[in-house]
Amino acid sequence: MYEAVDAELSRRGVLAVGAASMAVSVAPAVGSARPAPELQPSTAHVAFEVNGERQALELDTRTTLLDALREHLHLTGSKKGCDHGQCGACTVIVDGRRINSCLTLAVMHEGSRVTTIEGLGSPGRLNPMQAAFVKHDGYQCGYCTPGQICSAVAVLDEIRAGIPSHVSADLNAPSATTSDELRERMSGNICRCGAYSNIIKAMSEVAEASGTPA
């Protein structure tokens, strides 16, 4: 909707510069009171595995993976910070790779294996990364935290797998868990509370304990 509104305004705004008063009409594509047939939402069946459990859902095809998790499966650990793939709060691990779950439709994940923050550990049984975040205070308000932790776990896997990053000096050599590498790879996860320095400490400790090359 913003695209449509802004385009309308920009076009008229350019014409109207200097005008004392003008009428702006924000018109929908459909003018009649009756919805056009194409507006009827389509639904689809999708089945995937979330945290080891098979889930079968009948979903509006516009439903993102994030909203399927949060609104349909009530797994609200994955957060909606921007719904635009800009903040990383919705990061989950799908088939071993981290993704922004707000940028992908649920129906695209037939047969996928999804791991959310709830699948990594629980309050009584923290995963090592979750425990390290608590120990090093790698969070404040907690809203970006599940995404940070899912990303952090996946980043260490990426380094172990030898996947280079923008700051890797040698694309063919094994990567290392240096602070620069961690910061670069974590930069898709925004923390407005500014816990970055502590998050890197938490990740470094987990990397060291798990023998990821430093």
């Binding site: 709830e118 309050p123 975040f133």
Partner: peptide, 21 residues
């Protein structure tokens, strides 16, 4: 002290306003 709400926040179990299922 570690934050006492830490285990809830780091596991996704701390409910925010939109999440009150």
């Amino acid at each position: 002290h570690d934050r006492i709400d830490g285990p809830l926040k780091t596991t996704g179990h701390a409910p925010y306003a939109y999440e009150r299922h």
